[in-house]
Amino acid sequence: MSAFTRVAIIALLALPATAHAFPTGEQFDLDPMIEDGAGGVAFTGAPRWTGHTCAVCHTGGSHTVGLRLEAEPTSLFSDGWKANTTYHLRVVLRDAKAAGAATALGDDCGFAVDPYVRCDVNGYALEVDDNLGRPLGKLAALGANGSCGSAAGMDPDSRVLKDGTAITMVGTHHGQTSWDLCWTAPDAGYGPMVAYIAAVDGNGGDGTEDYPTDVNDDDVAAGAVPIVEAGANPPVAQVGGCGASDADGGALVLILVALAAWRMRRRGLALVTAALLAQGCVHVRPRQRETLAQRKMTFAPDPGEDELDLHMQESREGASGGYGSAGGGCGCN
């Protein structure tokens, strides 16, 4: 990749928070409530994540790590993107040193050797958006023969999120500081774009096999690389959709309930349902679910306790149903 034009963008963000690390990449697609995942969110720093990057969770680093984005053909940065052209990109993490004490014994991030050694596991996320904040183009892992468009290899560097909007690292590889990927530009006419990139210089958890990764004392770099469109066509107009909102919208519920009560006085059940479901159009984005992901906000925070309680209640009351399983047996005492 020596012929690559190099564009180095360094933008460091540090937003305090706590969360789990996503060392394998696959976790970005898992459910945050039940699978310790990211719910399809890769914090690339794009506007749709309100600029949030990996620094939302990974904190405590020295703020010295940097990023570089390379491309082939190099005309991507000099002339701009061309419709339906595939570009080979490489994300490079510069000056990674958070896990400087790690010992490079095998690639399987410390698990290839016995006893376990501290792992130097790093990662990244990237997406390419137009000036309306929409991810565009097609992302893919590099093919097995080292070129874009060929079949994927057994152990690619990168993995595309299920919804295709972003790409991240995959697997855990000791000491990896660069990742290859492919991006195919969309049809002409979308105008200038920006490649949003965020990367983590991980420090290898607490150095034990039990905690090979965590979010503490990791350094983070993030940046935004502008890419013009060759020919500079005007952007496509935005289309409609359900708006995002941080508000509770309680007033809307009350209004709907009041209207329903006025028109259907004797249908209490319908009122309850209307009150509960009337706000279906308020679109809460994955990044807004930090509170909802807490155990205390789930409808069955302790299923084991629920089963014991329900078994007791259903054997002492005439009603049953609607709250889940009470287990089998009589409970006739």
């Binding site: 679910r289 909802l292 409808f299 609607g322």
Partner: peptide, 19 residues
């Protein structure tokens, strides 16, 4: 069952069971 997130701080659920 129908579970609906209605805001970043509120979620609702309606369940009907026929036994």
């Amino acid at each position: 069952s129908w579970t609906q997130v209605i805001s970043p701080r509120t979620a609702t659920q309606v369940t009907y069971e026929l036994g």
